[in-house]
Design a protein around this nucleic acid. Structure first.
Length: 580
RNA sequence: GCGCCCGUAGCUCAACCGGAUAGAGCAACGGCCUUCUAAGCCGUAGGUUACAGGUUCAAGUCCUGUCGGGCGCGCCA
């Protein structure tokens, strides 16, 4: 419908150009909007306002000229000039309801589009270190990344999801030390436990598993000097403790402990996410970059790019050549690479895999980090425009009106699993994506878990369940037609029915806009509006009335509404219950 | 100090390349259940879009400055 109106306007503009009313320059994109205001028509365009200046005409005058030049169309009820020069179009009522037929015909496909043109996009998200369970901050990244993936798929992209596992580096050393110390304690060694080590209960659980599998084979008795290091409380002593552990355990023993921790935590993270409705196509291991030699090759590649130099015995990347604030160390004076180096190697690996678009979903605290990664990729010849980042602000939990504090090392954080168990997956996902990602999120636990009408997720789900319930009743009374193909939609036309149809018409645009702007929250807001439209209609009219033609038309309309609710909820990974 | 993000109703937030009278939910107040689920609907009230300038037919949206908040500025990860 929009397309054919666009054609009509293009014709009118061409005619005005031919008559010399408008200058002959390039084509003008005629955009239509659905006015929020009643009385402003079904569609509205500001094209006359935009063209008034080049035409040298008053906007209202030009608007009238455009209207006069419009070809006749059976779609249009009336067209009028409004306000400063808007053109408001009133569409013939019956034409609005054609969307119902289209939805019933397309079903789950309704709302999908080909904007993505099959382009391959990689979304990397969560990527939390395997040093503890996921907390509620990761949950937001998970919900956002996964929903974005679903939306981009619907918009015609070929989506892959990836989790980057930081299974290498100092935090893994600390994890290993933490587990080993708990293991020693459980084997009867009385030891101090450093304050900077991971404090959570899960460390003890891993240690007990380790003991169950390996007995006391990994026990090494610490001397007085080691005990002192463990209770010292500074970073240098912690590193010294790690060095002692590595020496005492040897390479094999060290890896046994490390892998016990890593595997336990990855399995935990994986099942946690699966229960949250989030799955990945690939878990990319940082350690694999070290083992495969990709890291060395990356450093070599960076050197050859000519954007590196040596200073103070370290290898620096001149990221300032690419707009970064300062240059960055890639290889330390000690000869070991920084965290930055494997990250470059990882992103180059993505580029080598040939994606058209790579999206990193990162915590907002990484916003200073991304420019250097992009810089390094560009230095190595990658097209930086294909690399995109979305920052997700932290979620701050509130319980009983008070902030819930979080800290991984202290072990007092709310995990994603606890959140899911407390409020349920559907409310959690809904709450996470109902805000723009770069907005701070106040997550009200009491509200999310309330099984009441305060809770917006039930509002939308209820609309779906309500329609299902109507059909249950209709079925009992033998009122459901075998097919909706030949339903007479001209029996619709009440105000609430028109409002509902207009909402349904908007759905494909909402999906397209959410995909184009990486804005899942648009879908959430739309679903709330659609649910409101349904509830309003429900309260105003009875569907199962005696006039069969009208009844069938109404059933067709709410059947279509149910389909769109279901499609939209699917996009944000929230279930569409058939009863509540 | 420098950089990025943000400031909209009492609270939490929307507002589609700059468009018409800035919209929802919650909280408050008033109505609607012998009829398909009241986890619902309708109505009332609530605003100088932090502040001051600027750009233009038009600014919450763009530019400059001020104030306020968050985050980042390691040879940590």
């Amino acid at each position: 419908m929009k397309e054919s109106l666009q054609g009509l306007f293009a014709d009118a503009l061409t005619q005005l150009r031919n008559r010399g009313v408008l200058p002959a320059d390039g084509p003008v994109d005629v955009r239509f909007e659905q006015p929020r205001q009643k009385g402003h028509g079904d569609l509205s365009t500001n094209v006359a306002l935009a063209l008034a200046r080049p035409a040298g005409m008053a906007p209202r005058e030009l608007a009238q000229s455009i209207i006069d030049a419009l070809p006749d169309s059976p779609l249009i009820e009336k067209v009028e000039v409004a306000g400063p020069g808007f053109i408001n179009i009133f569409v013939v009522s019956d034409a609005q309801f054609e969307v119902v037929r289209r939805i019933l015909d397309e079903g789950e496909r309704f709302g999908r589009c080909e904007d993505g043109g099959g382009r391959r996009v990689l979304i990397e998200f969560v990527s939390a270190n395997p040093t503890g369970p996921l907390h509620v901050g990761h949950g937001r990244g998970a919900a956002y990344g996964d929903t974005l993936g679903r939306i981009l798929s619907a918009a015609g992209y070929q989506v892959e999801r990836e989790y980057y596992v930081n299974d290498s580096g100092r935090q893994m050393d600390i994890l290993t030390l933490s587990i080993w110390l708990r293991y020693l304690q459980s084997c009867g060694q009385g030891l101090p436990f450093p304050g900077q080590a991971y404090q959570g209960d899960y460390i003890t659980r891993i240690a007990e598993q380790l003991r169950a599998g390996h007995g006391e084979a990994l026990v090494r008795a610490p001397g007085a000097a080691q005990r002192e290091l463990l209770s010292a409380g500074d970073e240098a002593s912690l590193d010294a403790s790690i060095a002692w552990m590595r020496e005492a355990l040897g390479d094999t023993g060290y890896h046994t402990v490390l892998e016990a921790g890593r595997d336990f935590l990855l399995a935990d993270i994986r099942s946690d996410l699966e229960e949250f409705g989030v799955t990945f196509d690939r878990w990319f291991s940082e350690a694999s970059l070290h083992e495969s030699g990709a890291l060395d090759r990356t450093i070599e590649r960076l050197r050859e790019s000519g954007h590196t130099y040596e200073k103070d015995g370290a290898l620096w990347f001149r990221s300032t050549d690419f707009g970064d604030e300062k240059d960055r160390v890639v290889v330390r004076e000690s000869g070991t690479p920084t965290y930055f180096a494997p990250d470059i190697a990882y992103h180059l690996d993505k580029f080598d895999r040939g994606y058209d678009l790579m999206i990193d979903v990162l915590g907002a605290d990484h916003h200073g980090y991304f420019p250097r990664v992009k810089a390094a990729v560009e230095a190595c010849g990658g097209d930086g425009d294909r690399l995109h980042v979305e920052f997700v602000q932290f979620a701050v939990l509130y319980r009983g009106g008070r902030k819930v504090s979080m800290s991984t090392r202290s072990g007092e954080f709310v995990t994603l699993r606890e959140l899911r168990e407390e409020v349920g997956t559907d409310p959690a996902r809904f709450f996470y994506v109902q805000r723009k990602p770069d907005q701070h999120l106040d997550f009200d636990l009491d509200l999310a878990k309330s099984q009441s009408n305060d809770n917006p997720v039930y509002y939308v789900q209820y609309a779906h369940a309500r329609i299902c319930s109507v059909f249950d009743q209709a079925r009992e009374r033998g009122m459901v037609p075998d097919r909706f193909d030949d339903v007479d939609l001209s029996r619709l036309g009440e105000e609430h029915e028109q409002d509902l149809a207009k909402l349904l018409i908007r759905y494909p645009e909402v999906v397209a806009a959410a995909a184009a702007g990486y804005d899942p929250h648009l879908v959430v807001f739309y679903l709330r509006e659609l649910a409101n439209g349904l509830h309003t209609y429900y309260n105003a009219h009875r569907f199962l009335e005696s006039d069969a033609d009208r009844r069938n038309a109404r059933l067709a309309l709410i059947h279509a509404t149910r389909q769109v609710l279901s499609n939209g909820l699917g996009l944000i990974g929230v279930s569409a219950p058939t009863s509540m």
